[in-house]
Nucleic acid binder design. Structure first.
Lengths: 131, 131
DNA sequence: CGATCTTTGACAATCGTTCTCAACAAGCGT
DNA sequence: ACGCTTGTTGAGAACGATTGTCAAAGATCG
């Protein structure tokens, strides 16, 4: 039950730190390959899963359903503004929104409330790159 | 290019109306089967896809990534409070949130902004049913 | 160092969803 | 009502992300 520190897990964390923005498991796997680190894809998935459970990384779903991972600066609850082309991410928080969400849900008699609030857009660079 | 009204499409729309809450394509397919209507799964997916494009149905992704569909009362933009157990849905709108979202995104130089704002919870009935 | 016990990785298996393509049927004109 | 044209259907294959399998490998501890 004790989490062991392995070469592979360290490598995944390093890749996350290096890439900074939201990336898919497969992108991370490829980045590790490119760097010469040999890590199995399944292992990357397992590492990310473990990190997510430990709240070490944030997970969100791209519009096509793929899971994206990122090591965020703040560990407290927050949301993201993500570029759908390059993954560039800006952390945002919205105290107003939080309050609104829980108030609305409670008013309807719902429990165990969770909310998904993510903003997607095209960042200035990608817009420029697309002509 | 003209959309044809087929037995299958009508059936899918009927199933949606009957079930009222957010359902997966597979759930709808099964409901049709159970009712005696013979409709292929692929056809259900295609019908839902077409309906979604025409803004006839709302689509959202469950926490496990599955797509859920629903015919909403209002066709204007709005959000949902959904029971993660039974799919029961309450339509909500948050003018405050909308404004907040576009303001934040624009401030960061992002374009083509879209936002995902969904609330998940356990409705009173499901809470009771779980003891 | 050695025993223990988690972790790894190549590959198979899942699961939702989309694709393929020949058979089929709406809608239109006659 | 009758073909024609052309969008639609359905069974099954294909796909892509993710998870499961299990024997071999390696971390940790005494």
């Amino acid at each position: 039950m004790t989490a062991r520190m392995t070469r592979q897990r360290t490598a995944v964390v390093e890749a996350l730190d290096e890439l900074a923005d939201f990336r898919s498991a497969q992108q991370l796997h490829e980045a590790l390959r490119a760097r010469g680190e040999s890590v199995g894809l399944a292992t990357v998935y397992r590492a990310l899963q473990a990190l997510a459970e430990a709240s070490e990384v944030d997970v969100l779903r791209a519009e096509d359903g793929e899971s994206l991972y990122r090591r965020c600066a703040r560990r407290e609850h927050h949301h993201h503004l993500v570029c759908r082309m390059c993954g560039r991410t800006v952390e945002i928080d919205g105290p107003t929104v939080e309050a609104w969400a829980s108030k609305v849900a409670a008013a309807q008699g719902f429990d165990d409330i969770e909310h998904t609030i993510e903003l997607w857009g095209t960042c200035a660079d990608c817009r420029a790159a697309a002509h």
